[in-house]
Simulated assay, not measured.
Amino acid sequence: MPSQVTRLRATMIGATAVLMWSTLGLFGAASGGVPPFLLNALCFGIAGLGATAWLALRGRLVLMRQPCRVYGFGILGLFGFHFFYFTAIRNAPPVDANLINYTWPLLIVVFSAFLPGERLKIQHVAGTLLGLGGAALLILRGDGLALDGDAAPGYFAAVASALFWSGYSVLSRRLGSVPTEAVAGFCLGTSLLSVAAHLVFETTVWPQGTGEWSAVLGLAAFPVGLAFFVWDIGVKRGDIQVLGAFAYTAPVSSTLLLIVFGFGDFTLVVMAACALVTLGALVAAKDMLFGRFTKKTGGVAAGERVEE
């Protein structure tokens, strides 16, 4: 990453993570019957090793040398989110668990108000709520919430997954001096913990054939790889509230990709969800779109430089 980056550019870089996460459904569907924690271990392992090799070739491996507390934070954030998410969808109706989990963008927007130099504006809240409405419409598809009492552990796990990812994203801002290169170590640590979880909870099923292995490599390259590096840039140096609202484009984009590749149909519900999420993102990014970033104490105005 360049040594200097503007707030606007950092926001745009971070937004590419959301676009990459929209391919999760497509690549996941093509990866066959590989159990979640094993898939997690493979993808984070490949991504971490690839990033480490790239840093070594560029002579930047030294940037991965960080205090244990930094690695503890990063690994706990990445692994904790995935652990609780997989636990949620196994112990609660997947639709309900997915919807509860997708409160994390809203939580990012709310929690960001407590960051130094940040101020929560009405358009951030309104835009994020519109996005949540669009995601809910898409996920529920008219089925409604089941809220089965026997699935309470799964619901709690879904809440935990949302809290882990929103907490990781917001608190990353407080570690602005930690270089993004350290994310390579986060990925490697997450892979190791995922191996342990796989051995405890799952039966091993490896990818079969070139197609499934290609899907695993696609996951490792983008939604379970590069996405976490660009997200780190975005949440540390960009407009975290705009990123939170924009995150609701992920379930919509994912659905549209599945439709394009023949895994679903384009319906009025999908169209309405697209409209709500798009409107929400536009509302939340009003200041950015019209170039009216305001200079905040400890914050950065558009066009100003942020030193790494």
Rank of each mutant, 00 (worst) to 15 (best):
residue 195 V to H: 07
residue 184 A to L: 08
residue 167 G to P: 01
residue 43 C to I: 08
residue 67 P to S: 02
residue 13 I to T: 03
residue 75 I to L: 04
residue 149 G to T: 10
residue 299 G to N: 00
residue 40 N to Y: 01
residue 129 L to D: 05
residue 298 G to H: 00
residue 223 P to R: 11
residue 246 F to V: 08
residue 243 L to Y: 08
residue 124 H to W: 11
residue 44 F to N: 10
residue 167 G to D: 06
residue 101 N to Y: 02
residue 140 L to E: 12
residue 92 A to Q: 06
residue 72 G to D: 10
residue 49 L to Y: 08
residue 160 A to H: 03
residue 291 G to L: 09
residue 138 L to N: 06
residue 64 M to R: 04
residue 253 S to W: 08
residue 179 P to Q: 14
residue 92 A to F: 04
residue 207 P to I: 05
residue 64 M to A: 07
residue 2 P to M: 11
residue 206 W to Y: 14
residue 183 V to I: 12
residue 137 L to H: 10
residue 115 L to Y: 02
residue 277 V to C: 13
residue 90 R to N: 14
residue 118 E to Y: 06
residue 118 E to R: 14
residue 69 R to P: 04
residue 166 S to H: 13
residue 177 S to I: 06
residue 104 W to I: 14
residue 75 I to F: 08
residue 123 Q to T: 15
residue 65 R to W: 03
residue 211 G to D: 14
residue 82 H to Q: 13
residue 111 F to S: 05
residue 196 A to K: 01
residue 208 Q to W: 00
residue 279 L to P: 01
residue 253 S to N: 13
residue 29 A to F: 01
residue 63 L to F: 12
residue 292 R to K: 13
residue 217 L to M: 03
residue 50 G to I: 01
residue 167 G to T: 02
residue 31 S to M: 07
residue 89 I to W: 09
residue 55 L to F: 00
residue 229 F to E: 03
residue 292 R to I: 07
residue 188 L to N: 02
residue 42 L to T: 03
residue 98 N to L: 09
residue 290 F to R: 11
residue 130 L to P: 12
residue 251 P to L: 14
residue 288 M to Q: 15
residue 176 G to R: 15
residue 211 G to C: 02
residue 166 S to T: 09
residue 166 S to L: 10
residue 179 P to T: 12
residue 69 R to F: 15
residue 69 R to E: 09
residue 24 L to K: 02
residue 302 A to C: 14
residue 281 A to K: 12
residue 117 G to D: 07
residue 213 W to R: 05
residue 19 L to Q: 01
residue 292 R to M: 10
residue 299 G to M: 05
residue 289 L to N: 12
residue 276 L to C: 09
residue 283 V to F: 09
residue 59 G to H: 00
residue 163 L to G: 04
residue 92 A to P: 10
residue 92 A to S: 08
residue 74 G to P: 06
residue 49 L to D: 03
residue 247 A to K: 06
residue 103 T to V: 15
residue 68 C to W: 15
residue 130 L to T: 08
residue 139 I to H: 04
residue 233 I to Y: 14
residue 43 C to F: 01
residue 296 K to S: 14
residue 177 S to E: 15
residue 134 G to Q: 04
residue 69 R to W: 15
residue 141 R to A: 09
residue 230 V to C: 01
residue 131 G to C: 07
residue 251 P to R: 06
residue 107 L to N: 03
residue 99 L to A: 13
residue 109 V to R: 03
residue 169 S to D: 15
residue 295 K to A: 14
residue 136 A to Y: 13
residue 83 F to L: 10
residue 200 V to R: 06
residue 93 P to T: 01
residue 169 S to E: 15
residue 303 G to M: 04
residue 144 G to H: 09
residue 172 S to N: 15
residue 280 G to R: 08
residue 187 C to N: 15
residue 224 V to G: 09
residue 37 F to R: 03
residue 123 Q to I: 15
residue 87 T to S: 13
residue 270 V to C: 04
residue 61 L to K: 00
residue 43 C to M: 00
residue 217 L to F: 12
residue 153 P to N: 01
residue 202 E to T: 12
residue 3 S to L: 14
residue 33 G to S: 06
residue 217 L to D: 00
residue 5 V to K: 07
residue 156 F to P: 00
residue 94 P to N: 08
residue 174 R to F: 09
residue 1 M to K: 05
residue 78 L to K: 02
residue 284 A to S: 10
